[in-house]
Design a protein around this nucleic acid. Structure first.
Length: 184
DNA sequence: CCTCTAACCTATTCATTAA
DNA sequence: TTAATGAATAGGTTAGAGG
């Protein structure tokens, strides 16, 4: 088959030095603590995540991602063991009281909203225009340059891409709707 | 090869803040 | 009060380490 992926679509941005953070290896002891915390509270507050981070000596952003992945796995497989545990305890599992139901879980305090200075925004926007998908090294560089934590840089790029796409979509929809001859 | 899962992504929603 | 935007969510994809 012909390799037709040489098209210009992903020539500059996605291919260029776009590498991930190296994979974190949790020790058994760390996992024990994390799993225990998850069983107690699958939606930990920011303060709790910070506490866990210092407790197992890792970054708070790794804790955040770990909980995200754990919830996804838990929800997806809904493991037979857990289902059994739910039913064996008389219809309602006390150990797992549908902990992933957001409507019943009261969410606790988030991380404080970050305020960016205009010079920080200037740096970030410039970087975004040159590459909206910065790899780990690029994000670290930006963090160093702006003094903003790398985890905030990553979130900033996510939000920026989303809102950029939303605007783009709305524009194309408006173009479609403005067909000439539309009466009224 | 295959499985597991950290890292990453989009889309949406919640929440804070400046105008 | 509202618009802009940071933070968190669900849920999906990518990739690295080990069987």
């Amino acid at each position: 088959m012909a390799e037709d992926n040489s098209s210009d679509v992903l020539s500059t941005e996605k291919l260029s030095k776009n590498y991930r953070r190296s994979r974190t290896r949790f020790t058994e002891e760390q996992l024990k603590i994390l799993i225990n915390a998850f069983d107690q509270k699958p939606y930990p507050s920011y303060a709790t995540k910070q506490k866990l981070a210092s407790e197992i000596n890792t970054e708070e952003s790794r804790i955040q991602v770990w909980f995200q992945n754990r919830r996804a796995r838990y929800r997806f497989q809904k493991t037979p063991e857990i289902k059994e545990a739910l039913e064996s305890s008389g219809g309602h599992g006390e150990d797992y009281p549908s902990p992933l139901d957001l409507s019943t879980v009261q969410r606790e305090s988030r991380r404080c909203r970050t305020n960016y200075s205009s010079s920080q925004l200037h740096t970030l926007i410039k970087a975004f225009m040159s590459n909206p998908y910065p790899g780990f090294d690029s994000r670290e560089q930006l963090a160093k340059e702006t003094g903003v934590p790398e985890s905030r840089i990553q979130i900033w790029f996510q939000n920026r891409r989303n809102r950029f796409n939303i605007q783009r979509k709305r524009k194309s929809n408006e173009l479609l709707e403005q067909d000439p001859g539309e009466e009224h």
